[in-house]
Design a binder for these strands. Structure first.
Lengths: 238, 238
DNA sequence: CGTATACTTGAATTGAGTCAATAAGTGTGG
DNA sequence: CCACACTTATTGACTCAATTCAAGTATACG
């Protein structure tokens, strides 16, 4: 066990049953302690850049991260938002395929890819878990492809809100207002829209009584049925 | 070794250096022979349906496959096209996340997921390869997200043609016309457009001298530079 | 408390979609 | 081998959802 470890050990980590660490039962956790390094990020700090040499995986423990891609002329697409338990860097081969930035104060666990690979070669569960995580991310990306390619602005926003809601519900905050840590610009770049269209669509859904925009970052889903209908009954997400 | 094996053994397979089998050096190939089953598909035959229980991975050896998702009202999004060496089913957890259909006469190698998992538990290279394949698919899906979310019709089609061209070039058919085995409807559903817009955009690119549409399924890329420019110099694809 | 930033709203524009007609392939049977 | 039917692709005219441009208004933070 590493006594220079700056935070709490892995077996006390609040997200250990998620993410990468799910693969370790408690007697294997020591192994993890040896290779993990904690890191803290302020809002808008960058974890890594697209095309940088990919040296690490990062497990988010608190906060939120956005994964983005950019075109040379500045157009941006957000690939996904990561929350505690999620892993950044699963799409990387030699280099990262996206840029990862904190959208709130964030803590991450950093794993050296080579060290993790050595561990994975010895513990099949770990490699298996990596495959599962990548598969899962792939399924989510495919769901978003359908949204971007074939849905209207209203359907896109409904999909987005339901996704955040279901994630919150899985963590036990079912009735509460949905908290949106990201800006309208982030939502727009995630859904392939402009900030103006996002804003108008929020207003439209509110006028129809489907949602209530308490503040720009807190939205009540008043009529989940109608919202799911608006999303084309496309209810899978995670 | 299974003497009832209907086709050539794995070590004679033309795509063994790709796909799943790359993980097996020749003395391990026998292991593969034991669990693989070959399957043949006619045009438009379905390999599996979205939401079916996911029992198998499929490695494409000849032909081409499209992966699709559908909304209840019939809107369709094509997630990707698979060619020899590619694997279908990497995005599946309990159930498949897409439907897989042959767009040409196609041969596949079928792997039972449980059997393959047992093999992978014993041979770390195999599990490692599965992770790599899923990561790679994820990176491709993310590239397509940028295309669907932020590119114009012309940029989308340029991206598509460059992708097919580079794939063909990697197989050694560099100068030849790009062969498009899929219909205009498939291209439209891949790029989030309508067939009319796809058709008009082909015509426009041809008028500008960037491409030459020999037949609907054979296109010469006359000016690869201009085409890449039209695609926003977004040149990665595989 | 003031000022920069983020968000909303309105009016005009436009790129892609829809609807509709024509043309070009593809295959089948006489 | 050709004529017919059917499917697939192209082209044209019009429409519309979302963008762009342009103010305004709210929010947050130093």
């Amino acid at each position: 066990m590493n006594i220079n470890r700056p935070y709490s050990p892995c077996d006390l980590c609040g997200v250990s049953e998620l993410g990468l660490c799910q693969a370790f039962d408690s007697d294997k956790t020591a192994r993890l302690d040896e290779i993990v390094r904690r890191q803290e990020l302020g809002q808008d700090q960058t974890l890594f850049y697209e095309k940088d040499r990919a040296g690490y995986f990062y497990a988010i423990t608190t906060g939120a991260v956005r994964l983005t891609k950019m075109l040379p002329d500045g157009r941006r697409q957000i690939i996904g938002f990561l929350f505690p338990g999620d892993i950044a860097g699963l799409d990387a081969d030699a280099t990262y395929n996206t840029t990862a930035e904190a959208i709130a104060p964030t803590h991450v666990c950093r794993f050296d890819r080579h060290q993790l690979q050595e561990t994975a070669d010895q513990i099949p569960d770990v490699q298996r878990r990596l495959t599962w995580l990548a598969s899962h991310e792939l399924a989510l990306a495919e769901d978003l492809l359908m949204v971007l390619g074939r849905m209207s602005a209203q359907e896109k926003l409904a999909f987005f809100l339901i996704g955040l809601y279901e994630r919150a519900a899985r963590k036990g905050n079912a009735g509460a207002p949905v908290f949106l840590p990201m800006s309208r610009a982030d939502i727009a770049d995630y859904l392939g829209l402009t900030i103006e269209t996002v804003s108008r669509t929020f207003t439209k859904l509110a006028r129809e009584g489907v949602i209530e925009v308490e503040t720009a970052h807190n939205v009540h889903l008043k009529d989940l049925g109608k919202l799911k209908e608006a999303a084309g009954v496309f209810t899978e997400e995670a």
